[in-house]
């Protein structure tokens, strides 16, 4: 007699399952083109033979090896974040169940590390599932198709996230100067620990929870896009320029490339609150997406 009911062994055979498994494989192993372009052009800024140059050379080799051998770019396959838009009436529960099974299968195949640990007992569930894992953000929309985006965000960079409440006597008041100083403070504190050159997603406003969530969603933007808000577009540019004059450099080795990009959004706030929430993303900026047809087949790959 077995003590527990047998686990569901059979892998569900569905187009949706196959699509999500392939989305996970691509996200973990193939860096998006916009990120590859940014890393490649960063290397041209560094002095040949410097530690920064060596670091970016190794990063370039790593990107190629992971892609060619279909293996994880980074061993920390991170928090598994699904951002899903679905038509009205779509069964989101079924999506969640199927995607969770795909995560289990991707873990068995080694596309994902066993990354879900009970926060009190320290026990690893071994399959990346459990309370809070994977993470799903569902939104309805009036389009006829499903759009799924996946971000894998490693713990090293997640630990470098920071949230500021303005005014702060050290940083400034409730204005864009205060915001800018808060972001620069985050960059100083992160040094090389978030696996720079990094990319920042920033939210001005919101509450503490939604602020961090929206900051992370900024990382779904293309690296070379332009912010529709001219004030924020200016701030993004200024932050990157200043960060790259800090001398922190790739891996914190010293050098010219500290940030590849900064993406800033805003949410309304309470009169009493003014939060600046910053999500630090490592160079191994794994985010991909797909549009799915009614059967769950991929109709278009995103990024």
């Amino acid at each position: 007699m077995t003590a527990t009911a047998p686990l569901r062994e059979a892998v569900p055979q569905s187009a949706l399952f196959d699509s999500i498994l392939e989305l996970i494989r691509r996200t973990s192993t193939i860096l998006p083109d916009d990120v590859v372009r940014a890393v490649t052009s960063a290397r041209k800024q560094e002095a040949p033979g410097s530690n920064a140059d060596v670091a970016l050379d190794v990063i370039g080799c790593n990107i190629g090896l992971a892609r060619d051998n279909s293996l994880p770019l980074c061993q920390d396959t991170g928090t598994i974040l699904f951002y899903v838009h679905t038509p009205v009436g779509y069964d989101q529960l079924e999506f969640e169940e199927t995607a969770t099974e795909a995560v289990r299968e991707a873990t068995r195949k080694g596309y994902l590390r066993q990354n879900s640990v009970d926060s009190v007992t320290g026990k690893n569930t071994g399959d990346n599932t459990g309370p809070g894992s994977p993470v799903f953000h569902f939104h309805q929309w009036r389009e006829p198709h499903v759009e799924v985006k996946l971000m894998l965000k490693g713990g090293g960079c997640e630990n470098m996230n920071a949230q500021y409440s303005l005014p702060d006597p050290r940083l400034g008041g409730r204005d864009l100067a205060g915001v800018e100083n808060a972001i620069l403070d985050c960059i100083l504190n992160a040094q090389g620990q978030g696996c720079g050159p990094g990319i920042l997603g920033v939210c001005i406003g919101g509450d503490r929870g939604t602020g961090y969530g929206f900051a992370k969603e900024q990382l779904l933007r293309e690296l070379d896009d332009t912010n529709g808000d001219p004030l924020l577009a200016d701030l993004e540019k200024r932050v990157v320029e200043k960060a790259n004059q800090s001398g922190i450099g790739p891996m914190g080795f010293g050098g010219k490339t500290t940030l590849l990009a900064c993406k800033i959004g805003k949410q309304n706030r309470l009169p009493a609150s003014f939060f600046v929430s910053i999500a630090y993303m490592c160079w191994a900026y794994r985010r991909r997406g797909a549009n799915l047809d009614a059967q769950g087949n991929v109709s278009e790959w995103l990024y």
Partner: peptide, 23 residues
């Protein structure tokens, strides 16, 4: 950091493991 494949390329063998109870 992040260069998991370049590092793994230098790892020729896995000879054993201890304390697997830690995950």
């Amino acid at each position: 950091g992040g260069a998991a494949q370049v590092c793994a390329n230098s790892i020729k063998r896995v000879d054993g493991v201890d304390w697997m109870d830690l995950g």
